[in-house]
Design a protein around this nucleic acid. Sequence first.
DNA 1: TTTTTAGTTCTGTATTTGCAGAACTAAAAA
DNA 2: TTTTTAGTTCTGCAAATACAGAACTAAAAA
Lengths: 153, 153
Amino acid sequence: MLSNEQLHLIEEMGVYHERRGMSPIPGRILGLFVVSDKDAYTFDEIKEILKISKSATSSALNFLVSTDRIEYTTLPGDRKRYFKWSPFKALENIERETNNMFSIAEMFRRAYELKNNKQSESANNLLMVMDFFNYMIMELPNLYNKWKRSYYK
Amino acid sequence: MLSNEQLHLIEEMGVYHERRGMSPIPGRILGLFVVSDKDAYTFDEIKEILKISKSATSSALNFLVSTDRIEYTTLPGDRKRYFKWSPFKALENIERETNNMFSIAEMFRRAYELKNNKQSESANNLLMVMDFFNYMIMELPNLYNKWKRSYYK
DNA sequence: TTTTTAGTTCTGTATTTGCAGAACTAAAAA
DNA sequence: TTTTTAGTTCTGCAAATACAGAACTAAAAA
């Protein structure tokens, strides 16, 4: 079903996600979805392909669903869940990273307010970084929209 | 020296970095640099303020220096190192994140090449995400440059 | 009613991590 | 020459993590 090259690439993607703080199995599941030809997998298929336990499969899938990285559909008269990777959700998540910049920018703002000497080098450095973040927070949504327009035109 | 609010904010920034995969102490050291008024700290000062061991201080500082998050200067006739947060390095690191997008985009490209059916939904989904990443890799440097011009004008 | 299915939850464990504390080192100072 | 300084490296441990395997559950099928 999956070639050795594909399995190897899944591992690479797993490591990529691990390096950003995700645990191994969820990262590999994401890799599986990106690499494989099938666009939906059941619990048991994922478990078998990645050779992992039911408990690990269960918690990884629930984690990925709860963090909006994958989704599942069900079929009438079929209790299985069909998990799939949603590229739209993936892009939405990247866009949501802007909120993330927002949260660190907010911490920077508070740090600046707490500075005793607002003329210090340290305060000026912080002001510069704050300016950059505020700029990105303003401009990134425009960039995303520009891409959407170009993609869907 | 540092108020309770400042110490609390340092912890918050530490947690922020932890959530992105950094270990606790380096994250708090970064927080210290952002929050405090002083713009340079010695090994021992950091150790005392954060109440951590020499070994933890040593490995955290070396980690932060080696990943270009902080830097240090020395003074003639003084063996101490004076560590400081460089906002320029910080911004460079954010820019360097583009390379990071480049590495995942490259994995996507390989995944696409390995697909057996390039007409599948899965293949089309991947193409879309690849298009987005390639767009961002093209456009982000322009955005950074636009900020620089606006900031330094 | 019993069995199967599609999981979830619990229990235990091997591995990893994050750190402290102690021992060590190399250069400078006394 | 001995002591101090500014760290680094080593040793050991407590806590967290990531998982397997077993027990469990709730709904559907037989």
